[in-house]
Design a binder for these strands. Structure first.
Lengths: 213, 213
DNA sequence: TCGTCTATCTGACGGATTGTCAGAACTGAA
DNA sequence: TTCAGTTCTGACAATCCGTCAGATAGACGA
């Protein structure tokens, strides 16, 4: 059922699986180097050292390959989800837990940003299949954060004027966009650590109602 | 100096200016409809009813046209900057001012999101000229917010453990990404108003140190 | 009105990319 | 080695890219 298939639908074997993987890794590498807007099937095929026809055997176009890479992001991010769930379920969420989450997620962005950016872009551009992936990718973060907000609201530590989903979304937005600003920050004297500390505190405050003063 | 030029550098006249404008509007429209990844020069030329050669007379490629649209975003967003500056300079920043800012900026995203997304994408992908535009586009927001944070920190209402730039950046991140999640939010019962209220409160709290409880 | 000058636009071209076959090359099993 | 199934590719038509030289349109003076 979850077997990997070629574009004609047939299940593929070991050799083909390796070819497919080489195509994916090359796509990811070129995406990092030159961005998505002028990434051609030809570029990938040349770099892989295969005929363009080979590419089309596994993917409909470059976007389709990026889609496959996006699907893989869900598994790749799972350890961060797991860590977060483990931390947050053992009782009170501490600032240290927030720091660890922000730090690990920032590292994740540094490695996988090129793919994540296109996943978010295509979802933002209303492509339904990318939206589905974005949902699956975000869901564990959102669920955990929404629960934290609701819990803080129930115990009166956080105002109910905040919408739980929107609050979680805003924090996710910060986590997803700030790594992209890091270079600019560093040029102006804000270190990676300072950024992580700041986001961690904003996150902690928004989810628990702890004051920022 | 600031005259609009063709790709060969010559300053263009009235008729050409109209053609250039039609190309830009068409590019923006197609960008909204079908996204950026498979937007061809041919598509734009066909829609405009002109030869592809006419397109190349004004822009090097589709990305170059989107760049020109991005440059225009700076002027287009200026009224929001102005409103913000006017509100925030008359003394204490109120929650109402934050609400207005978030509301207007969300509307701005609803209209110009297609272009803004590519501007941010290309800047995130390290394209220097888009980075310059992103800086110019963000600078007034950042400057104003950073000043608010510093002021709140100086008067002891906000912890100095927050980095001012990173705090402002995090809020800008929320403003820039949340409009993209609105459809999903609405499907799950979070209205536009609830989203705006939430972001406004998070913004207000982060910039002034006011508690969220 | 007419011709002339200049700005603007385009047909047409060589070259590159896309996407699709039929068949070649490879692989493992017998 | 042969064979059957799998994987890969050369070659092709269609499309797109990017660039000219030359066609067209508009302004202006006679």
């Amino acid at each position: 059922m979850s077997d990997t298939t070629a574009t004609d639908g047939r299940v593929i074997g070991e050799r083909a699986l390796q070819t497919r993987r080489r195509i994916l890794e090359t796509t990811a590498a070129l995406l990092r180097e030159q961005g998505a807007l002028d990434l051609k099937v030809m570029d990938v095929a040349r770099e892989v050292g295969a005929s363009p026809a080979t590419f089309y055997q596994y993917f409909a176009d470059v976007e389709d390959a990026i889609f496959a890479l996006s699907v893989e992001m869900i598994e790749k991010v799972a350890p961060i989800h797991a860590q977060m769930a483990a931390d947050w379920n053992e009782g009170a969420t501490g600032l240290d837990h927030a720091r660890r989450l922000v730090s690990e997620y920032t590292d994740f962005w540094d490695v996988n940003g090129a793919v994540l950016r296109i996943m978010l872009l295509r979802a933002d551009e209303r492509d339904e299949r990318f939206r589905q992936i974005r949902r699956d990718y975000n869901a564990p973060f959102m669920t955990a954060m929404v629960a934290k907000v609701r819990s803080a609201q129930d115990s009166g530590r956080l105002t109910t004027a905040l919408d739980a989903e929107a609050t979680a979304g805003a924090m996710l937005a910060a986590l997803d966009r700030l790594p992209n600003y890091r270079e600019g920050f560093e040029k102006r004297g804000t270190s990676r650590e300072a950024m992580i500390e700041t986001v961690a505190r904003l996150l902690y405050s928004s989810l628990t109602g702890a004051p920022l003063s």
